Simulated scan of single mutants.
Amino acid sequence: MRNLFAFLAGGLFGTGLYVSGMTDTSKVQGWLDVFGAWDPTLAFVMGGAMIPMAIAWLIVERAKAPVAGGSFPAKPSPKLGRNLILGSTLFGMGWGLAGLCPGPAIASLSYNGLGGVVFVIAMGLGMLATPALRSRLDRAVPAE
């Protein structure tokens, strides 16, 4: 049952990315180009995602257990830490340079040719290297 819900959610997410144009790297880079050919499309996509998510959070607060079984994950800490800031910075750099984040990157495998494949490989290598880099950073500068 969980796999079915995951498949449906992934399909809905991918369809939303495609319909909204967020698989088009020029749309994302246009959002970041504030002093040039600025494209506000991404703001509407983000707003369109945050509104249903806020409603979902209200529903989850009242629910006793997830529909697909198991338990709800613990709420994340609102504390801004080194990992959040570093991860956000690296994510934003990759997003700004390539115009892709993980969802559209996977979708780009079907239409972006070699460029999409290279990006997904680089993204995967970055994900694999992150734990080692994080432990090295933790040894060099212990978290407080």
Rank of each mutant, 00 (worst) to 15 (best):
I51R: 07
L90E: 00
I85H: 09
S108E: 04
A74Y: 02
L109N: 09
L86D: 05
G94W: 00
P104H: 09
F91R: 08
G70R: 04
P52G: 09
L133S: 11
A54E: 07
S88H: 05
G115Y: 10
A56M: 01
V120H: 08
V60G: 06
L58A: 14
A43W: 14
A129N: 00
M93A: 13
T89L: 11
I59Q: 07
G103D: 06
A49H: 12
V120T: 01
M50T: 13
G48H: 00
F44N: 15
Y111H: 03
L97W: 12
I85C: 09
G81E: 05
L97S: 06
A68V: 10
M123S: 14
P73V: 14
M127K: 02
F119I: 11
W57T: 15
G47A: 06
P66K: 09
F91Y: 05
L114S: 12
R62L: 13
V67A: 04
P66R: 07
W57H: 15
V45F: 15
G69F: 12
L109F: 00
L100M: 02
F72T: 11
I85F: 04
G99F: 06
S110E: 02
A105S: 03
V120I: 08
I85L: 02
V45T: 15
Y111W: 01
M93R: 11
L80S: 05
G103N: 04
L133V: 11
M127C: 04
